[in-house]
Design a protein around this nucleic acid. Structure first.
Ligand SMILES: [Zn+2]
Ligand SMILES: [Zn+2]
Ligand SMILES: [Zn+2]
Ligand SMILES: [Zn+2]
Lengths: 166, 166
DNA sequence: TCATAAATGTTATATTATAACAATAATGAA
DNA sequence: TTCATTATTGTTATAATATAACATTTATGA
């Protein structure tokens, strides 16, 4: 890979003005590293699906992925994509956006986090919210009813800073 | 309708030991009243779909509803159900559970609320979380990135008090 | 090098949701 | 009441999302 400038892409960076190739590159490097550590096999298909998911900050659906894959691999079929997605989800490399039946890359697969997203209804971009306070409040609120949370889906739709201007 | 004891079904009541007919009855009465006020037509089909949704505290899918409806109305088809669901969603009489592609009755359709749910992975029951603090925290957390939330999906999966015992 | 397990290929089908147009029923104005 | 308008429901077809089941190939390590 050619040497590239390291631009920090912070969580909550809604700007279009970053070099998104850096996001993609970072994600793939991290994924390879994590899978290596874990003895999980980031095969060609899986890697390519991850790359396609990272091709934008918009969640992408399984059949959109399939459409692209088919151009490169004529025998790609739904299971091809869904198996790759299952693997990537298991490894925490992507998240599922329930409200869209779509998938998005996880920028920080190595950290504990909760899969909480802000999703712009205009440009479609989504960013992960790293806010442990929400998680704690949710937990304590549930506990006050005796309910123990194991996993959560938090998806807030609205307008990102960019799209409020336009 | 026969006179019945008014049993308060509080939010967060996970017990099986309430008379669920009361939940159903209350929901239908409230729905009729609200629709009346709004000039919205709670037709036979819509009312029946609402009743079926309220038949348990578990979210129920469109095609499960259809299966039941077909026994009573031989020309019921997917649009029959989805139109009723659309109406009930618009009126705030039901909520959609995104993580299950399923629907659940709203116990308090007249109040402002946020559609936040606790869903038991064991018994399948779901209750709506009335916790404005979570909503405020979510809003402020989003705002700190300049993001304005318009709607939210909060679905926490875990074990309800009953199912922790078993 | 061979047995095993993991990944992928392949075909079929299940599940969830909507499009499009026709027929009927409700509503209110003339 | 009658008629025009709109809302609701009927009907058929199909789109979109996801999984089952079994065959084949590839990777892995004993
Ligand atoms: Zn980027
Ligand atoms: Zn935007
Ligand atoms: Zn009940
Ligand atoms: Zn339970």
């Amino acid at each position: 890979m050619a040497k590239r400038k390291t631009v920090k892409k912070t969580v909550g960076d809604w700007a279009n003005n970053h070099d998104h190739r850096v996001c993609i590159g970072d994600a793939l490097v991290k994924a390879a590293s994590l899978c290596g550590q874990r003895g999980a096999r980031l095969t060609q298909i899986r890697r390519r699906v991850l790359e396609l998911i990272w091709s934008s900050h918009r969640p992408i659906g399984a059949y959109s992925l399939l459409k692209v894959l088919k151009k490169e691999r004529e025998n790609a079929a739904p299971p091809t994509v869904y198996r790759a997605l299952d693997f990537l989800l298991e490894q925490g490399l992507i998240h599922r956006i329930q409200s869209q039946n779509a998938f998005i890359g996880c920028a920080d697969p190595n950290h504990q986090h909760y899969g909480m997203f802000l999703i712009c209804t205009d440009c479609g971009n989504a960013v992960e919210l790293e806010e442990s306070k929400i998680d704690r409040l949710l937990n304590s609120s549930a506990l006050s009813q005796g309910f123990v949370i194991e996993s959560r889906t938090v998806e807030a739709a609205g307008l990102c800073p960019q799209c409020q201007i336009n």
